[in-house]
Design a protein around this nucleic acid. Sequence first.
DNA 1: GAAGAAAATTTCGTATAGGCAAAAAATTTT
DNA 2: AAAATTTTTTGCCTATACGAAATTTTCTTC
Lengths: 207, 207
Amino acid sequence: MSDDFEDFTKLLSSARGSSFKRQSTADLGERVRAIRRSKNWTLEEAARRTGLAASTLSKIENDHMSPTFDAVQRLAEGLEIDITELFASSAGERPSGRRSVTRAGDGRGMETPVYAHKLLASELVQKRILPFVTRIKARSFDDFKELKGHKGEEFVYVLEGEVLFYTEHYEPERLGPGDSIYFDSGMHHGCISVSEEDAVVLWINTG
Amino acid sequence: MSDDFEDFTKLLSSARGSSFKRQSTADLGERVRAIRRSKNWTLEEAARRTGLAASTLSKIENDHMSPTFDAVQRLAEGLEIDITELFASSAGERPSGRRSVTRAGDGRGMETPVYAHKLLASELVQKRILPFVTRIKARSFDDFKELKGHKGEEFVYVLEGEVLFYTEHYEPERLGPGDSIYFDSGMHHGCISVSEEDAVVLWINTG
DNA sequence: GAAGAAAATTTCGTATAGGCAAAAAATTTT
DNA sequence: AAAATTTTTTGCCTATACGAAATTTTCTTC
């Protein structure tokens, strides 16, 4: 079974699997308390660092009030955390306990005009890492209608053959077996085979 | 140059590189207005969808007040955006335009008693993907003091030799060249070589 | 287990968030 | 361009956030 794609962004979103809107249970208080406790700070100490009154912090932790945006910001800054952590469980809460084995040669086929991807661990949905074993069909830069960029970061490790890797802002780079390249997907990028046989690479993508 | 670690969590945080706190310029109002305008909604429409009064929205957009946490949540939900977008400039903003090539055999050495890792693209800091070429030194399950879990997800692709991969909740799995395994890092996990030579794998980690 | 110290919670006063309705401003229609 | 309509802003009022200090609870130490 092999799906066809002309747009890499669509391929990725298909590979990633459907994402469901998450409901924020949002017991902010619990989270704040956990963070403060983990740093072994008293309310007083946290108050000193955040600039909020200890009483205010107590009320926040016990869900007796809903802090203002300002307060939330001072909270994050004072607790030395990224503000998004305060919404962590609403955002975080990742699956855990999954495992998936893919045997050599297996994987869900996904074809574009220039690449033949096999998505590994395809039975898992909502992965953070998208691993492909990819055969590079392209033989010339002109095989690409256009080089496109998308969100995320990418890592490519050459398994067999030789490739020429094109990225925006840089000279093309020639890579052989065991060589690898890491880049921000935002740059336009593409890859062609330059060895006798089509090159095969391990292509890792993250969102 | 090769660092020594006894704790994988520490190894990962070292590999990931230092993270700098970012300042939130946080003109929330401007951002909210931009989002609402982009959807061609009137204040009234946005009020209907968020459950907040139009006047309240007006005041938020004009920075005449600092909404409570509750209000921010209803705002995000009603505007159909991820709540972190409201802190976008404080949270989002990923680097873009980086590229790093690592030649076969190169990489920053990082040793544990059971693994010899080489971190690829080590010159890049704040990567989403941590790629290692790892030689599996462990030969028996007993070589591990303890199997530990940590945050994130992991993907391992066998390059050479044969390994036995242990994960919590599952039977050990035997993997040869070209085989791969994907799993949630929260599970305790570990890997030993079972072939004549030490096995070598490509080990991908994400936070 | 009582006395003292430290931490957390509650109380209360003031400042401000947030809803409603009316005024002002902007847009469209005739 | 004046009138009508839609959209946004402004007062006004009540509910609630937040700080200071008092009170209660929890943790020490004898």
